[in-house]
């Protein structure tokens, strides 16, 4: 698969997540947004981000999960992605719980679904 194809796949994943029917969304117990290896992107109000460990060909929703640690580009994922099967999941602790601070995306929870 060419790099352009890989990137198209990543973008398609992101777009399909944006287009998923909202009523069916259920939050899993372990989600990427609660993992210390997850980086929220600057655009991530909609819930997108990337993994600092996994690379683009990974698929943590597959059974068994696929882990790519070699490719150039990072694994694009979402706050609410079910990370229950991911062996790299590490629960983070939050500092800014009301979401009014900036620039600490790894330590904030402004999203409704991530409130306590």
């Amino acid at each position: 698969m060419s790099r352009r194809d890989e990137l198209r796949k990543v973008q398609a994943g992101r777009l399909s997540a944006q287009r998923a029917p909202k009523a069916t969304q259920v939050k899993a117990e372990k989600i990427c947004g609660l993992c210390s290896n997850y980086s929220e992107g600057a655009f991530s109000g909609e819930g997108a981000g990337s993994c600092r460990i996994l690379k683009v060909k990974s698929d943590i929703s597959a059974d068994p999960p696929k882990y790519d640690l070699e490719s150039t580009d990072g694994y694009q994922t979402m706050n609410l992605m079910d990370a229950g099967k991911c062996q790299y999941y590490e629960k983070m602790s939050f500092v800014d719980k009301d979401g009014t601070e900036c620039s600490d995306p790894r330590y904030r929870r402004s999203m409704r679904q991530m409130q306590d």
Partner: peptide
Amino acid sequence: GEMLNEEIYNDSTAI
């Protein structure tokens, strides 16, 4: 855009 729509759906205070 869907991206903005998604953000509103996720917003914890503005609904």
